[in-house]
Design a binder for these strands. Structure first.
Lengths: 195, 195
DNA sequence: GTTTTAAAAGAACATCTGTTCAGTTAACTA
DNA sequence: TAGTTAACTGAACAGATGTTCTTTTAAAAC
């Protein structure tokens, strides 16, 4: 056999990325073989190399797409808000965006060490850019006297860790709706920065 | 060659665990081979099986020891405190204990999916027991009217995520001392629960 | 309908994987 | 010092690993 009936790169390409995403999230990058991904797609291992130069690029592309989408979605949010409004917007956005993409988030946090040095730098840059946006909000709030935080960098890390932690336990259809979780976390974030 | 001069299980055993700890933390369980561990110890791969029945047990033993030590150290802390004092004690203990064991903490969070079902249950039980202690503190504080939290379970998860997040960026000898970090985080935790 | 191109199969490569085991030598015991 | 036990070597096992390449066939273009 060779080319199969109905085969098309516009279909197979996305399926390769989807299979890699699901498998990497479940078992980890290092524990997943190219043959497992191929089996999931319904193709032989060699065919994957029509869609990625190698396994490493497959991982990087997934992480890069996720981080880029995060920054792009964030950029679509309303600007020109007061620090308090901006913090609420950021909080709710972060929880919602991340809860909608549990697999991407999981990979983005767990597989950093499996990136090549060069790829790691690029992802780190994107992550830093995102964190800086929160820090900027906190800084403005402090300058306006709305927030009381001893150290804006620490507060940034604390808030992000707290919010991203939602992904470790939140499941749709559980005891609380996402809207309720958003509200409770927003209350805690607000109080934690003294507003 | 066979038995090497100076070889002794009291020495090699700990070295095997230390090598596994360091390598698992750096590259991930799945990415580390028994031969890499053996090379680090200065021994052939087969010799490792004098110290562990298999690779999986090596991982489980590391995680189990870590979680057990966490609970034991926690049990040594002063009890009979007010909810506010107890929360401060918990906060400072958590940050200090975790900052002293970055590799163990990293493995305990990242390698859960590489545990067998049975081993995963055991580790989860220990983790749950630890979280329950924080939740109990929050519950008592709410009952006494000292804390204002909408949901004690969520607040527990939020606080732990926030505190454990310190490990992702804190490095000894950095801009802030551990004592400073402890203080700042304690302020944020206290405020976040409305105290 | 013929030619060109795109997509996949399937075999092959060298190397690595966890684990077992018989053989060998050092350390300990009496 | 002889006998026993503990610690390790080194080879072997069967199978998996990422990746490359030639060949084959379907889809698209003309």
């Amino acid at each position: 056999m060779a080319r199969t009936t109905g085969s098309h790169s516009d279909i197979t390409g996305p399926r390769v990325r989807a299979a890699a995403l699901a498998l990497f999230a479940q078992h980890g990058f290092a524990a997943v073989s190219m043959r497992q991904i191929a089996r999931e797609v319904g193709v032989q291992a060699g065919a994957l190399y029509n869609y990625t130069p190698d396994k490493q690029s497959l991982l990087f592309d997934l992480m890069n797409a996720h981080m880029s989408e995060l920054l792009a979605s964030r950029a679509d949010l309303p600007a020109e808000q007061s620090p308090l409004q901006a913090l609420e917007t950021f909080t709710r956005f972060h929880i919602r965006f991340h809860s909608e993409r549990p697999e991407e988030v999981f990979i983005a946090y767990m597989e950093l060490r499996n990136l090549s040095d060069e790829n790691f730098q690029k992802i780190e840059e994107l992550r830093r850019a995102y964190e800086d946006q929160l820090e900027e909000i906190l800084r403005e709030g402090v300058a306006e006297g709305v927030f009381q935080v001893a150290d804006s960098k620490l507060a940034t890390m604390a808030v992000i860790a707290m919010l991203t932690g939602v992904n470790t336990w939140f499941r749709e259809g559980g005891r609380l709706s996402l809207a309720q979780v958003e509200q409770i976390y927003w209350d805690m974030v607000r109080k934690s920065v003294g507003a």
